[in-house]
């Protein structure tokens, strides 16, 4: 039981459009997998399928040893194994940063107000926002909001973290603080799947790089090797576009 995520022949269709085709993927504990690819290649949809925010059309999905479709396994059980960080942060606007982080532990893990509060303080401290815990999302910068969102996702103690373009909605000068927090998580051994356009981050932090195109995984391997010697014209083109 060493793999945290396993999907076999996973497919996703929206109506007649195939967004994901026969995805086979295994992720092991401690891996930092960066997924890149042109827009519309299915990267985000793949992440959303992994925590069943999108129902899958075909194939098998197993997360943290829990298999989708097994008797007694609810979508919620799979979601509890994963933490998700969204492009648009999606913080709950009617709650303070602290309450945002506390909601998961309280409702999902059944923690008391005090336990959840202490956990929230610890996590906000970890993302460098201890002094912002009583601020509402509207009072925080984009970078701060995204760091709160990371703390919120960590609070339910997931075994895998999914990042869906976590810096795409941020001004360039705010990206660094978010990437730094993510780098810290990677260094602590957190298993992560990251959809991003930050090639520098991919080269520095990823232990594995996946290139997706038209709903398929085209390449899957060591980031350094793939960046240095792109195995296909498709990937070479893509790299030229994002780097210019």
């Amino acid at each position: 039981m060493s793999r945290l995520i396993a999907c076999r022949n996973l497919s996703k269709r929206f109506g007649t459009t195939e967004v994901l085709r026969d995805i086979n993927l295994e992720v092991h504990p401690g891996e930092v997998v960066v997924i890149v690819g042109p827009s519309g290649s299915g990267k985000s949809t793949l992440l959303r399928c992994l925590n069943v925010l999108e129902p899958i059309s075909d194939g098998e999905l197993e997360v943290g040893g829990k298999r989708l479709g097994d008797r007694g396994t609810r979508k919620r059980d799979i979601r509890r194994e994963t933490g998700m960080v969204f492009q648009q942060f999606n913080l709950f606007p009617h709650m303070t940063a602290r309450d945002n982080v506390m909601l998961g532990p309280r409702k999902v893990r059944g923690q008391s107000r005090r336990e959840a509060g202490e956990l929230a303080d610890r996590l906000l401290n970890r993302v460098g926002l201890a002094d912002r815990s009583h601020h509402y999302p509207s009072e925080l910068s984009g970078g701060q909001q995204q760091r709160v969102a990371i703390a919120r996702a960590l609070a339910v103690n997931p075994r895998v973290m999914l990042f869906d373009e976590p810096t795409s909605a941020l001004d360039p000068e705010l990206r660094g603080e978010v990437l730094q927090v993510m780098q810290g998580l990677a260094a602590d051994g957190m298993t992560m799947l990251i959809v991003t356009h930050e090639m520098r981050f991919a080269a520095d932090v990823a232990s594995r790089l996946i290139f997706m195109d038209e709903g398929r995984i085209l390449h899957d391997g060591n980031p350094k090797t793939l960046f240095q010697d792109p195995p296909s014209d498709r990937f070479r083109d893509f790299l030229r576009h994002v780097q210019s």
Partner: peptide, 30 residues
Amino acid sequence: IDKGLQDAGLALGLSYPQVLLSIVGPLAFR
């Protein structure tokens, strides 16, 4: 109410009724 907030609640592992009660409801009420 932004669908993304519902996604965020579900992604935390909240049940759909919990999402309605803690997130969509209070925001919609306002």
